[in-house]
Write a protein that binds this DNA or RNA. Structure first.
Lengths: 100, 100
DNA sequence: CTGTATCCCGTCTGATACTG
DNA sequence: CAGTATCAGACGGGATACAG
């Protein structure tokens, strides 16, 4: 939770589920994230072994981000939580209205 | 994740699994949390419908916190994530060492 | 006992501009 | 294209003291 509970890590994880992606591709897929923050997020996830960063020495430069086995293995557990959230978000919102 | 990904919510959830608890009881069980922050945490969880706060008009005052059905229903999904974390924490730590 | 009131600091996140 | 540099705001969390 400490590692993927931030604002963007989970969206990166979901975006990369379909296969490797490049920096800009990832950025537009997610939407609303600045390059600085996306870089921070990706580097942290790389350090945790959730994804790999591969640089191709080309012109123009190309960098691909790919989920590791560890990263892919997170999808199962997270989807369990996601399912719970989807099933209960309505009740939670209803509950919060009472306090407004 | 937005709601229970903070520093203390999950510990509250786990602590209350065994049944209702009072403020101070909860505080010493968790350990290291100041009254202000614990109050913030509990109020947020109450608003989300994860627990109820019941005040008893006694001397000395008594307040009990109890998990709702919604709160209890979170244990399953979270334990799935917890299991994943326990099984993979070693590999994650090993990975982080490479970058140090 | 169960909190509230203040003050404070570090971190997260973002806007904007710039670079190899 | 894929970032880095810089500045700044908002927020979570903590220390301490006080109150009903």
């Amino acid at each position: 939770m400490d590692r993927i509970g931030d604002k963007w890590s989970m969206l990166v994880l979901l975006s990369l589920k379909g296969g490797p992606m490049r920096f800009t591709q990832l950025r537009s897929r997610i939407g609303g994230v600045t390059p600085k923050v996306l870089t921070q997020t990706l580097r942290a996830m790389e350090q945790d072994g959730l994804l790999t960063r591969e640089v191709f020495a080309e012109v123009p430069p190309r960098v691909e981000y790919t989920l590791t086995g560890l990263g892919r293995s997170l999808h199962g557990p997270l989807s369990v939580v996601a399912t719970w959230a989807e099933q209960n978000v309505a009740e939670i919102l209803r509950c919060r209205e009472k306090f407004s």
